[in-house]
Design a protein around this nucleic acid. Structure first.
Length: 424
RNA sequence: GGAGUGGUGGCCGAGUGGUCGAAGGCGCUCGCCUGGAAAGCGGGUGUACCAGUCAAAUGGUACCGAGGGUUCGAAUCCCUCCUACUCCGCCA
């Protein structure tokens, strides 16, 4: 979340940037946060003063008791009781202010980076690059859901039987292809210097707040009945939270992790052709990159991550384009985001397979993830993450593009991961 | 799941009601010593908030797993929760 001192010192700037991302009540939220913070400071000062006096009295009582002045000590106790009552009220007020401030800040999204295109919604996202010319559909081109059925790669009906819509069952070569892709992505990331992690796929509310899934995505996560646990919507949540509350030595930075996990999303409100086949699922696999680095390095890192992900889709020989998300389409916690979309020839549309974001200090402030300078001062780090990649849509684009009416030919790069060259 | 014992600073570890943000050691760091190093000697070494300042120095408050409670006063006593270890049970 944003730092209150920064908001206070840059009110106009903050309001303008928040407004640019279509936040309606930016001025109101900012004013509210500043007011609460002022009250908080006043209360804190009062509390500290009274607490200090109460301590003094306690020490006096101690001395009186030691020197045998029992009556005098008893008299001082009465004074101390008064301080105690006052402190209790002040403490309640202070906690309330702190809570109010935190809740207000929780509901203020990140500020867009200067390079982020200004825009209202996804229509205004800027196309950075696009592979041309796009492959053209042949007479025998099919959408992936038909190929999946034709070759018995994935069974949605069985998924319905086991869990419900959006929980596909991968079978035979379908399952093996998916596993091959996961291994390919993990190996590539490792070669690029990312350390592999296998995290829990359940997360507690504290972690979900720290990375910003809560309160923003409340209702999009599956929650376990009677438990303070959620199924992770992305590996970003557990991996980034590895560093919650840590002050890292400078030489360990940057932190670079890769993790393969299933991801779970309720996708409430989604419908229509968007959810056909593999386009949108409640459970899907994803390989995710997380980087925690110095503020001065985070934007170069964002570019490096983008190039890395472009390299993956290139190796899979999939036509793709890169979008820079506009202010109106930016995720709640992000300052700058690139989306990588692959072309689905069977659907004649683009499918988002990666989202690469720089959160600057938004997450690290909530997490209190810092580093120590040589002069002993501590500073917040920057966090980034990016999908590399989301499996189902890659699978969809891959099957459609490589189908020639007779068979589906596997990409060359997967040779060492598969013991079959094509699906017939 | 049952029974028991614990959770203290970067790490180890003392501390069972006051002078304890916390002994001691290790680590790290600065200085001395040395041709250089080791050893030795001396100093420093948590975080947050508030006040203060150009910045600092400095002062105040809070924090000994988390949250409540008792008390003039809590790392220390009580309650709840989390968690680790040992034994038993169960088990991939």
């Amino acid at each position: 979340m944003l730092e209150i001192n920064f908001i206070e010192a840059n009110q106009e700037h903050v309001i303008n940037l928040l407004t640019s991302r279509q936040l309606k009540n930016a001025a109101e939220l900012v004013a509210h946060a500043i007011t609460i913070n002022k009250e908080r400071k006043i209360t804190q000062q009062a509390y500290d003063l009274v607490a200090s006096k109460a301590k003094e009295v306690s020490k006096e009582i101690e001395q009186l008791l030691k020197t045998g002045q029992k009556d005098a000590a008893e008299a001082r106790k009465a004074d101390s009781m008064q301080f105690k009552d006052a402190l209790k009220k002040l403490d309640t007020g202070l906690k309330q202010h702190q809570k109010d401030l935190q809740e207000t800040l929780y509901n203020i999204p990140n500020l867009p980076h200067a390079g982020t295109p200004i825009g209202k919604d996804e229509q205004d996202n800027k196309i950075i690059s696009e592979v041309k010319p796009l492959p053209t559909a042949a007479a025998n081109t099919l959408p992936h859901w038909e190929l999946i059925e034709k070759y018995d790669l994935i069974d949605f009906k069985l998924g319905n039987q086991l869990a419900g819509a959006g929980f596909p069952v991968y079978k035979g070569k379908g399952a093996r292809l998916q596993r091959a892709l996961i291994n390919f992505f993990l190996d590539e990331a490792r070669a690029a210097g990312f350390e592999e992690i296998q995290p829990p796929i359940l997360t507690n509310a504290t972690s979900a707040y720290a990375t910003g899934q809560l309160p923003d995505k409340e209702g999009q996560m599956y929650q376990l009945a009677g438990e303070d646990l959620y199924l992770i919507p992305t590996a970003e949540t557990p991996i980034t939270n590895l560093y919650r509350g840590k002050i890292l030595p400078k030489q360990t930075i940057p932190i670079q992790h890769v993790a393969y996990t299933p991801c779970f999303r309720r996708e409430a409100g989604s419908w229509g052709k968007d959810v056909r086949g593999l386009n949108r699922l409640h459970q899907f696999d994803k390989v995710e990159l997380v980087v925690i680095t110095l503020p001065s390095l985070s934007y170069p890192t964002l570019e490096t991550m983008r190039q890395y992900v472009e390299g993956l889709v290139t190796k899979l020989a999939l036509p793709y384009r890169v979008l820079s998300l506009c202010t109106g389409d930016l995720g709640f916690t992000s300052a700058a985001t690139y989306d990588i979309e692959v072309f689905s020839i069977g659907q004649d549309r683009w499918l988002e397979v990666s989202s690469i974001s720089n959160f600057e200090t938004y997450q690290t402030h909530r997490m209190q993830t810092r580093y120590k300078e040589a002069d002993g001062t501590t500073h917040l780090l920057h966090s980034l993450n990016g999908s590399a990649l989301a499996l189902p849509r890659i699978m969809a684009a891959l099957l459609e593009l490589n189908y020639d009416g007779d068979k589906i030919t596997m990409p060359k790069i997967l040779t060492k991961y598969l013991d079959f060259e094509c699906i017939r």
